[in-house]
Amino acid sequence: MLLQVERLDVYYGAVHALKGVTLCAEAGEIVTLIGANGAGKTTLLRTISGVIPSRSGRVTFEGRDITRLPAHDIVGLGISQAPEGRLVFANLTVEDNLELGAYRRKDRPGISKDREEVFRLFPRLRERRRQSAGTLSGGEQQMLAIGRALMSRPRLLLLDEPSLGLAPLLVREIFRTVREINQRGVTVLLVEQNAHMALSIAGRGYVLETGHVRLEDRAERLLQNDEVRRAYLGG
């Protein structure tokens, strides 16, 4: 098992945001996490990445307990995240953003090679490499956020609503790229509100509801599930 989350409890002050969440991802999978606004999806990804502390429960990655590790060390172990809202460094260039994605790495040739790979996945970023990230369109910023997350050579990639605010055509392009990234051996944990798209590229899925895992199944079965269809697929 690549990633294992066991009975995780997270609070924001008095708000109990995650209530005993258990979830896992096997190497090579695309696992999706769907749920309504406020269900706790972002909280879960942030806790895995170590930017939010958990009160109880455990996160293990490749058999190693990472629950209490600081965020910057978790990146070094091979988990990276393209966060909700993209959070690209607006005043830095596209290239500098990518370079920061590789902050923990020292292998210069490897870094340039991976940057070329990001430019191959997202050719628009190459054209805009010296432009400051704040001047990119929303879709380009999302590409940059994903590309930047790839620069640390993750084995697990956490994506928080990559389709947010993007036109349908662009959403399809992003999802195609996510699948390609996965085919190169990167395990993906994908948080989405666009449940249809997410379930169509994922192998398995979890439905999160007010901090609980409500359902867990193979993606094609979730697509057929009445409850899921009603709540997340618009009938």
């Binding site: 600081p70 990146v75 920061l100 902050y103």
Partner: peptide
Amino acid sequence: TRVGKAMRAVSHNHMAAALMGISV
């Protein structure tokens, strides 16, 4: 420099910087 870029990243957003592997 690398550390200077990290400074700019931190001044922009602490969480995003931490997600890059920067020790804020």
